[in-house]
Amino acid sequence: MLHRRRFLSTATCGLLAGGGAALLLGRGAQAQPSYTVPLAQLQEMVAQKFPRSVPVQGLLDLTVQAPRLRLLPEVNRLGAAMAVDAAGPALRRSHAGMFDVEFALRYEASDRTLRAHQLKLGRLEFPTLRPAVTEILNAYGPMLAEQSLREVTLHQLRPQDTAVFDGPGLQPGPITVTDKGLTVAFVARQP
């Protein structure tokens, strides 16, 4: 048991020196290994998935640009402000708008990714559209959020990021949003 603790302590300190992981002290003063992903790295990964087009029943197309992510540690979620353009046969010209969405994160073990889920959409705003048309677009808002962000990969852990934790039988557990980024705690692997 002492050898295992020494190994975990040495391995975690090695990762800290490399900048890839952080050691968090939990209640009871036990060290809990974790992996931290900074906001800039999340932003870079999500930007690769955009722009995205969402057709609305043959009437118009909404094109969603890459979101500007923000950390919401007080609710353990991420927020995203997203620019959207509406154009198509039902509109005479293109209209620029914005919407905001909040989401939680989950870990997908099959490909070691952190993904967006549990979306909460704010209101779509189009300053140059008539209010009645904006209301119709807001009816499609939940579909827009689902198609543009649901299950979007925000980060993929590489095998070398988790190798030291795999050996002692640990796996990624809870994801916590902090002021610095996301922290993925490692917990005992379930049999």
Rank of each mutant, 00 (worst) to 15 (best):
L59H: 09
A83H: 06
K180W: 04
G20T: 13
A139D: 10
P55S: 07
F99D: 00
V46Q: 02
L72R: 03
L91Q: 04
L105E: 02
Q65D: 14
S9H: 14
A163R: 04
V101F: 03
L182N: 02
H3K: 11
E151Y: 14
R158H: 13
T176H: 14
K180I: 13
E135I: 09
Q43W: 00
V133P: 01
A90R: 10
D179G: 15
E125Y: 06
L16W: 06
Q171M: 15
S9W: 15
G173Y: 05
L24E: 14
L129H: 05
P142R: 10
G88Q: 11
A11K: 07
E146I: 14
P159I: 07
T134E: 15
D61N: 04
V184T: 10
L170F: 05
T10C: 09
D179F: 12
L2N: 12
G141V: 12
K120F: 05
F103N: 00
L60M: 11
A31W: 04
A47Q: 07
A80F: 03
Q57G: 04
R106V: 06
L71M: 06
Y35E: 07
A40L: 08
F186D: 03
F165K: 02
L170W: 00
V184W: 00
T178N: 13
G122I: 03
T178D: 07
R70A: 09
M1T: 12
L71N: 00
A145K: 03
V84T: 09
M98A: 11
A96Y: 01
A163I: 10
P38F: 05
R6N: 10
L121R: 02
R70W: 01
R130G: 11
P55N: 08
G26C: 09
V101T: 14
A86P: 04
G167D: 08
L154I: 09
E135Y: 06
R52Q: 05
V101Q: 05
T162Q: 09
G141P: 02
R112F: 00
A81T: 13
A31R: 12
L2S: 14
L137M: 02
